[in-house]
Write a protein that binds this DNA or RNA. Structure first.
Lengths: 352, 352
DNA sequence: TTAGCAAATGAATCTGCCA
DNA sequence: ATGGCAGATTCATTTGCTA
C-alpha cells in the first residue's frame, strides 16, 4: 500500500496480523556536513521524512503508528521495532505506556559499522531492536526456541546478534548506481526475526516498507506480508525486488548457523581480566627492550606511550610489529609471550 | 553518604562533579517466583527498593534523581546510566527531555549471562548504558580517544563491550556466604568507564552506591568519589571494601596526552628555529606538487601564497588539508613529513 | 584471467581556539 | 555570540581499475 501508514492501516481489519516489523524514522538531528579524514563527504540521512520539529512531535508520531499497529495485531502477535539511541528510548517508553509488554531488547552488532571520524565518541557499532507483545497476558506468542537453539550449536540464542550491513549486490541501486534507500536493512536481520517469531503462512506487517526487505524475506520464507510506504518510488522498487525472489521449498526454512571466526582480544581485556597488573614490566625475547603495562591497556617505554604493536615496532625501529608475540612476561619458569595470556582469555570467552 | 540520593545530593554545591555513574533500580516486574528447570529457586531482584507502583512513579523518581545529578555536574561533566529493557527506555527518554545530550549508548555484552530458564525468550545477555553530556554545547567533555585506541589493537573502541559478570572473589558476600547485593557490577566495567571519560583527581559521583564498585575503582585509579546509598548495610560493606583497595601508582594512570591537546606550533617557529631555511622546497608524498618555504612561515606555489594547510588543500583541490602531514622534505634518506620537524621542536620545548 | 592496488561507502546527533 | 582558521580524524568491505 502506498500512503501514510496510519491512514493505510485504518483500512485493515482488527486483529489480522501475526507479526509487525517496524523501522521508523530515527529522528537524527544532524547539523552541518561531516567529512572523512580524506575530506570526502559522508552521505548523511537528510531526507524530509526524518525531520521532526521536536521530541514532542516525534512522540506524537510514534504513538499514532504504534496504536495503529496495535489495533491490527492478533492477540498473540508480536511487534519488532528497530532504532538507534536517537529514538529508541522514546519508542520503548511509549510502547510501555501503550500497554505493550517487552519480551527482549535485541542488539544488532554491526560487523562493519561506519567509524567515528572525529574521534570524539565510541564507534556507534550497533542498533537496538525491541520485541514486544500486546500485553503481559499474551503468553501464546510464537517463539521457535528449540529450532533456534538447534541452529546455534545447541546454545540458547542471545540478545546480541552479529551481522554485516546491507552492502554489495543486496543493496538496491537507482539508475545512477547510487543507493536507492538510505537505510536498507540486511535480509539476514529480517530472516532471524521471522524465523524466530513467526510461522509459514503468517501475515507480516511492515508500516515503513522502504526498499521492501521485509517483503523479500517474507516471500522467501513462505510468509504473507503487508507493506505500507509513503514514497511511490520506494514502493515500486520494492515490488520489483520482491517479484524476483524465489520462495524456498517448505522443508528448508531454518537457516544454518553462521560460522564464527576467532574473537579479537584487545590487550586492554588482558589487563582488565587481571592476567597482567598495571605496572607490570614486559620485555622482548632477548631482554633488549622493556616496557611498562598501563591501566588503559597501553604500553610505556619511558615517556613514549602506545599500543603493544606500536611500541614493539618503535623498539625495533620497524614499521610494524605483532605485539602479542614480541612482548614477554618474565617468571621463574622463564620468558613467556603475552600471546599465551590471550589464549588463556580466549578459552574463557566462548562467544566473543 | 547514607540516605536518599535526592536529599543527600542537595547538600553538594553546584557544578562540583566531573563524572556521574548511576545504576538505578531497574523496576523489574516479576510475577511470582522464577524456577530453574531443576525446580531450584532463582534468587531474583525483589528487594523493596526495586518496587514501584507504576511507570508514572518510576518516571517521577527518575526525573528527580537526574535533576539532582544535573545540578551538581560541571558544565563539561558526563553521566553514565546503566539499565535493562525494563527501565532504560524510560530513563533515556527522560534524559533527553531534561536536555541531556546522548553521546553513545554502549552495550555491555555479558560473557556469562543467566540463561532464560523458561525457553520463551532470547537469553537476556546484555545491559545498556547511556553516556551523555549536560547538553549539545558541552563539547569539552573528557574522552581519552588515543589511549583507548592504543589499548584496543589500534582500533577505535566500539559501542559494544564484552565483559564477564561480577562473580567469584570479586563478589561481596554477607555473613552467610550469600551475595551481599543483587546487582553488583564488575569492576572491569567501571574501569573502562573511568579510564575513558575521566582523569586522575576527578570527582566521580555514584548516586546509587550499593556495594561500592564505583568507589573501589575510583580509589584504585586515583579518582575521588562521592557515593550515596540508602541502606546502611550496603554503605558499611562498601566502605570496608574500598579501604582494602590498593591505589595504583600514578605513572600507570596518566593518560598519554591526546594529540589534539598538544601545544600548537606555528609553522613559522620551525623556520625561526632553523629546522627549515627560507627558500627550501617541500613536496607531497608522491612528488606531484612542490612549494617553497618563505621567511614568514608561509608557502608559495608559483604566485600563490598561503599557510601550509591552505596550500596543501589548494594543491589537491580539497576543502581542507593538514599541511603537517601533507608536505615533506627531501633528503638522501628519502621523504620525511614536516610533522617530524614539529615533533623535534616540541621535544625541545619545556613541558607544559 | 588474475593479482594487486586504489577508491568508494555505510542511519553520524563527530573540533577547538582565538580574535 | 560569531567568524575565521589551524589542524586532527576511519574500519570493514566491496567495487573497479591497472598491470
Amino acid at each position: 500500500m502506498v500512503g501514510d501508514c496510519v491512514a493505510e492501516l485504518a483500512k485493515l481489519p482488527d486483529a489480522s496480523v501475526d507479526l509487525v516489523f517496524a523501522d521508523p524514522p530515527y529522528n537524527l538531528q544532524l547539523e552541518g556536513a561531516l567529512t572523512r579524514p580524506d575530506q570526502s563527504l559522508v552521505d548523511a540521512v537528510d531526507d524530509d521524512w526524518d525531520k521532526f520539529a521536536s521530541f514532542e512531535a516525534y512522540d506524537h508520531f510514534t504513538r499514532a503508528w504504534l496504536l495503529s499497529c496495535r489495533r491490527v495485531m492478533k492477540p498473540n502477535a508480536t511487534l519488532w521495532v528497530i532504532g538507534s539511541y536517537h529514538n529508541i528510548f522514546r519508542v520503548g517508553a511509549i510502547l510501555q505506556d501503550l500497554g505493550f509488554w517487552i519480551l527482549n531488547d535485541v542488539v544488532w552488532r554491526k560487523a562493519n559499522p561506519m567509524p567515528n571520524f572525529r574521534g570524539r565518541r565510541f564507534t556507534n557499532a550497533h542498533e537496538t531492536m525491541i520485541w514486544a507483545t500486546k500485553g503481559p497476558d499474551a503468553k501464546g506468542y510464537t517463539f521457535h526456541y528449540d529450532a533456534l537453539k538447534a541452529g546455534n550449536e545447541d546454545l540458547q540464542v542471545r540478545s546480541d546478534w552479529y551481522l554485516p550491513l546491507c552492502t554489495g549486490g543486496e543493496r538496491l541501486k537507482d539508475g545512477d548506481g547510487k543507493k536507492l534507500h538510505p537505510t536498507q536493512k540486511p535480509e539476514a536481520l529480517l530472516a532471524r526475526i521471522m524465523m524466530s517469531s513467526s510461522n509459514p503462512g503468517d501475515v507480516v506487517l511492515d508500516p515503513f516498507f522502504g526498499s521492501g526487505t521485509t517483503g523479500a524475506v517474507a516471500r522467501r520464507f513462505g510468509r504473507s506480508f503487508i507493506g505500507v510506504e509513503r514514497e511511490r518510488a520506494y514502493a515500486d522498487a520494492a515490488l520489483a525486488r520482491i517479484a524476483a525472489v524465489e520462495p524456498l521449498p517448505a522443508d528448508a526454512l531454518l537457516a544454518p548457523p553462521e560460522k564464527r571466526s576467532e574473537p579479537r582480544i584487545p590487550f586492554m581485556s588482558v589487563v582488565e581480566a587481571g592476567l597482567l597488573a598495571p605496572g607490570a614490566v614486559l620485555c622482548d625475547e632477548r631482554r633488549r627492550f622493556e616496557a611498562v603495562v598501563r591501566a588503559d591497556g597501553s604500553l610505556a617505554m619511558g615517556k613514549l606511550i602506545g599500543s603493544i604493536h606500536k611500541m614493539g615496532a618503535l623498539a625495533q625501529g620497524l614499521p610494524a610489529c605483532n605485539g602479542w608475540t614480541f612482548w614477554h612476561t618474565a617468571s621463574k619458569a622463564g620468558l613467556e609471550p603475552i600471546d599465551a595470556l590471550r589464549k588463556t582469555l580466549r578459552a574463557t570467552m566462548p562467544a566473543a
